[in-house]
Structure formats: structure tokens, C-alpha cells
Design a protein around this nucleic acid. Structure first.
Length: 291
DNA sequence: AACCAGGTCGTGA
DNA sequence: TCACGACATGGT
């Protein structure tokens, strides 16, 4: 993989196991716009860049080399060998072959903890387009403006300090509905220092999940999404309605099964590959199997 | 017009 | 512990 920078454009040549559309649209992140096939505006970590993939070449417009090294390389999980991960997932259970083949360009992003926390609190009982709209509403209203590569203005997700100044009514105006008090509670928990990335990083996954679940509006599923996407805990295995469906059909003879039981089964079966297995299955279930 | 969406909470058995 | 309705919003 060769990385170069020309002006404000970073070119990553030789990306493998990488499909931008799959990475962004598999339901793990919500702050991006599709501009064209394999061309996206991505807003994260206080930046707005245009990413474009053609074959094995990824271009990031509006990024310095420093931003690539400090932000986009870790964000895109570039130092992880997904060829090996996919091999291991299939070795854990060959029944995942179809899902992995279908979604062979997925990578798990390393997203900002606070944005991930709030985004997945919003996600409950909403579909993905609605979640994206709420995240955009909050960012547009309370986030800092940044100028994208083409000169267009974008709004980054507000940090804890900024969101802490916002009232519940202002949140409701962003169409988050009954989740507004949950967002208030989560923001207070992080702002006050009761629940921080530093604390969570120092705990084992069970204790970290417990701490996250002290936040009102954060249950088992949301906590697992935050662990997986916002804290790099790849052994987390979130079970939502889609995962419930596909896991029941694959492993429980189509019978109605508790989400906790499904999660326990998966943790045992996939171990520290659980998060990856979950994401291949989730996207496959949602876009192909049960479409 | 009911039903559903990357759920969680409070309540009552 | 477990089942179940409520909760905002928008799309089919």
C-alpha cells in the first residue's frame, strides 16, 4: 500500500478488502453523503473530506498527510488485515461464506466515542435514513462549520461541551423525539466525567458495557454498538432485529430466541471476531437475505 | 390505515 | 425474571 499526498489530496494506492460504499452504508456510521458511485462526502473528527474509490485506489480530497495519518488511517482501520479477518471468520463457521463474499469490502470503522454514543441512542426504533437525518440535524444546528474540498459548507457533530449547552426542546427540534432526554442524560454522563472513553478503555468488556448502560437510553444493544464502533472492542456482538432474524434462521432452527441468548451464543462461537462476523451478517441480512 | 425501523424504560405479574 | 405497552417520527 503506497500513500502519497499532492496538495490537499491523499492517494492510497493498493487498498485491498476495501469497498467504500459497503464500509459507509453497512449501518455502522451515519454522517456522510453519497455523491456518486463510490464517491462520498465523509464528516468525522471535525473534518469533511471527499472520498473516492476506483479499483485499488482510494483518494481523499481535502486531507493533508497529517490528517490521513492521524485521522483517516485509523478511522478506516487501515492497519488491520481484512483478508486474514475474513479467512478467520469463515474458519470459525463456513456458514458465513456467503455473507462474507457478498460483503467482502466491509471494514469496521474506528469512530469517535461521543458521536457514536449519541448516534446509537438515536438509532433505537428508527431506520437508518432517519438516524442519518437526525445526526445531520444536530450537526447542522450545533456543530462547527467546515469547508469541504469543493468549497461547500458542512457541519461536524458537536463535541460534549457544545452539546451540553443544548436544551431538551432544542434536541426535539432535531426530530429525535422521545430520545431527547436520553441524549441529555448521556451528554451529562460524559460531560461530568462519570462515563468517559478513558474509563471505558480501562475496563474489561463486561464492566464497560455495564458502565455504558448506566446511561438512560443505553441498553445492551446500543452499548454493544458503542463498544464495537466507538471503542474498538471487536468482540462486541450487537443483536438488533436484523441480527435476530438471520441468527435465528442460521442457528436456532427459525425459532424465536432471546437476543441475550443469541449474543451469548455468538460470543462463544466467534470470540474476538464477533464484531466482524456481526457486521457481515447484519449487512447481508438487511440488503440481500431479507430484502 | 396499520405496521415497521440497528430499542429501552417503567410497570405489573 | 419476563411480558408488554409507550414512546416520536416518517415511510410503505
Amino acid at each position: 500500500m503506497n500513500v502519497s499526498c499532492d496538495g490537499n489530496i491523499v492517494t492510497v494506492d493498493g487498498v485491498k478488502d476495501f469497498r467504500l460504499s459497503q464500509i459507509l452504508e453497512c449501518g455502522q456510521c451515519f454522517h456522510f453523503d453519497k455523491l456518486d458511485d463510490e464517491v462520498y462526502e465523509v464528516i468525522a473528527f471535525g473534518r469533511a473530506v471527499k472520498m473516492e474509490q476506483s479499483g485499488g485506489v482510494l483518494r481523499i480530497y481535502g486531507s493533508s498527510m497529517e490528517d490521513y495519518e492521524g485521522i483517516w488511517r485509523p478511522y478506516l482501520d487501515m492497519d488491520n488485515d481484512y483478508g486474514l479477518i475474513k479467512e478467520s471468520v469463515i474458519k470459525a463457521d463456513s456458514a458465513l461464506q456467503t455473507a462474507v463474499n457478498e460483503k467482502d469490502g466491509i471494514r469496521i470503522l474506528n469512530q469517535d466515542f461521543f458521536e457514536t454514543l449519541i448516534s446509537f441512542i438515536i438509532s433505537q426504533n428508527k431506520n437508518i435514513p432517519q438516524i442519518k437525518q437526525c445526526v445531520k440535524n444536530i450537526s447542522h444546528r450545533f456543530g462547527d462549520e467546515v469547508i469541504g474540498y469543493n468549497g461547500e459548507a458542512f457541519y461536524v457533530f458537536p463535541d460534549v461541551d457544545r452539546l451540553h449547552e443544548v436544551t431538551e426542546d432544542e434536541l426535539r427540534e432535531c426530530k429525535v423525539g422521545f430520545r431527547a432526554p436520553y441524549i441529555m442524560n448521556a451528554t451529562e454522563a460524559v460531560y461530568s466525567g462519570n462515563v468517559t472513553k478513558e474509563k471505558l478503555d480501562a475496563l474489561d468488556i463486561e464492566q464497560a458495557r455495564e458502565l455504558l448502560m448506566t446511561i438512560k437510553g443505553v441498553g445492551e444493544k446500543v452499548a454493544n454498538c458503542v463498544l464495537l464502533f466507538g471503542l474498538g472492542r471487536r468482540e462486541a456482538f450487537p443483536v438488533d432485529v436484523w441480527m435476530k432474524r438471520i441468527m435465528e434462521s442460521m442457528y436456532f432452527d427459525g425459532k424465536d430466541t432471546k437476543k441475550l441468548e443469541i449474543e451469548a451464543f455468538a460470543v462463544k462461537k466467534f470470540g474476538n471476531l464477533g464484531g466482524y462476523a456481526q457486521q457481515y451478517l447484519f449487512d447481508y441480512a438487511r440488503t440481500t437475505l431479507f430484502k
